[in-house]
Simulated scan of single mutants.
Amino acid sequence: MTTLEQKLAFDRIIERVEKARLRVDGHHIVKIVAASKYVDAEAIRSLYAIGQRAFGENKVQDLMSKSEALEELPIEWHFIGTLQKNKINHLLSVRPHLLHSIDSVELAHALNERLERNDMTLRALIQVNSAYEESKSGFLPEEISENYARIREECPRLHLQGIMSIGAHVDDPKTVRKSFETTRRIFESLPNATTCSMGMSGDFELAIECGSNLVRLGSILFPKP
């Protein structure tokens, strides 16, 4: 794909985001995080060159290696995968802009301890399993209010920004919409929450219509040759 073709494809995706946003209210801004887990540093560099600034990785090792390879670019790095406690030090060495996936109180405490030790803070989202799927990590909807408040109180080095969820893994749009609407209702109930991260390449328009203000787009931004 030439640079011009990539730019035109990128513009079409932005247009789809804007149309979905306008179908809701036209007021809220939607941030795009490019999920770059399946591409190399040069593919990230190419997308950066046409205007994309936020990139998300699922594995700490990949985040470290790609951020090092692209250290001359002021990329806004996000960690969007499941974080293992033994990878916390490596993650913090990158100083990511946002961690999307706190899925337990234990992980929050481990992060806070390491942040305290390093005199650091970290923006983070709590992961919600809105679809009640066993294959997904995160708190169940009825657990969020109590645990969000608990983490805010007990882990001051974590600056909670809101929540993240993955849409129901089914073909029925109504079921997917229900999982997104559940996430949105939770988001609106949380004090000072600003980020509702939901929606990926296959369902981002529906997620935006349901109130998402951050989408994580991978395959649609990095199509296979």
Rank of each mutant, 00 (worst) to 15 (best):
E116T: 15
E116L: 08
E116R: 08
E116M: 11
E116N: 12
R117M: 07
N118Y: 06
N118T: 11
D119V: 14
D119M: 13
D119C: 09
M120R: 08
T121S: 12
T121C: 03
L122W: 01
L122Q: 12
L122H: 00
L125R: 05
L125Q: 08
I126C: 09
I126G: 07
N129H: 11
Y132K: 14
E134T: 15
S135F: 00
K136W: 14
S137R: 14
F139M: 08
P141D: 14
E143S: 14
E143A: 13
I144H: 10
S145M: 15
N147M: 08
Y148A: 13
Y148V: 13
Y148L: 09
Y148D: 09
A149R: 13
A149G: 06
R150I: 12
I151Y: 10
I151R: 12
E153K: 15
E153P: 02
R157T: 04
L158A: 12
L158N: 11
L158P: 01
L158D: 06
L160G: 12
G162A: 13
G162Q: 11
G162F: 13
I163V: 15
I163W: 02
I163S: 11
M164G: 06
M164H: 05
S165K: 03
G167L: 05
A168M: 01
A168P: 04
V170P: 09
P173D: 04
P173K: 06
T175H: 13
T175S: 11
T175M: 13
S179L: 00
F180N: 08
F180C: 02
F180M: 09
F180K: 02
T182E: 05
T182I: 10
R184L: 00
R184I: 04
R184E: 15
R185M: 06
I186S: 03
F187L: 00
E188W: 03
S189Q: 06
S189D: 02
L190T: 06
P191G: 05
P191C: 05
P191S: 05
N192E: 15
A193T: 07
T194N: 11
T195I: 14
T195H: 02
T195K: 11
S197N: 04
M198Y: 03
G199Y: 00
M200C: 03
G202T: 13
G202R: 15
G202E: 07
D203P: 03
D203C: 00
E205H: 10
E205Q: 13
L206G: 02
A207N: 01
A207L: 05
A207M: 10
A207Y: 12
I208V: 06
